[in-house]
Amino acid sequence: MITINQLHKTFGRQEVLKGIDLYFSAGEGLALIGPNGSGKTTLIKCLLGLNTVQPGLIQFNGEDIYQQSAYRKNIGYMPQISRFPEQMRVKELFALMKSIRAEESTYDLELFEAFEIEALYQKKMGLLSGGMRQKVSAALAFLFHPDVLILDEPTAGLDPVSNEILKEKLRKTIHNENKLVLITSHVLNDLDDIASRLVYLMEGRVLFDKQLTELQAETSENRLNAMIATFLRKQTSHG
């Protein structure tokens, strides 16, 4: 579904991504993890075309995304920090998005209803709290039935109830609807029953890329946190 070949990305003199090769396919719950500044957000921004990349490095369904925009109709994106124009009302946002995507006739309103977005309709974006903005952003990401969901730190700022709702929705999206979900998170506990594959980035390189079952067998741990800790410990002691 998404192929990344030798992706390099430099900002000025700083090389943030130093040659990444990855392949993502439908039905995967992919957890992108790694320490701060390892290039997770940069990688996501490259996928979304927010950061420009050279031609031929990233393919979406076999098509090069270089200078393309149409492929983004298949992507739902929830950014790390959702910021909207302050004066805009929630209702206007949804109306505008629907009118931009006029070709879509059915909407996925599950999160929209679960988060009770309609109750916020008359509120201005500037007055919403960070968590409420995250909810709006999540509802928006799912709205047009995208085949790929990209969530950058989705659980930061969400209350526990909303967090569970989002996780349940993600679980359903991966297992029942066979879609690709790409999540970055520091809160590994949140990824526990969503992720089926782990990609660990370190200083702009892929340190390891393993199926969850594989990792489980290698480390004989059950919790994600412990698995990664054990695995990294093994790696460093070997190296």
């Binding site: 075309g49 925009s69 950014p79 910021r83 909207f84 931009i100």
Partner: peptide, 19 residues
Amino acid sequence: YNMYEFLLLLHAQPLARST
């Protein structure tokens, strides 16, 4: 500059940058 976030929001939709 004020509408920069809005620009990013729209950019996630299938809209060309020139548009």
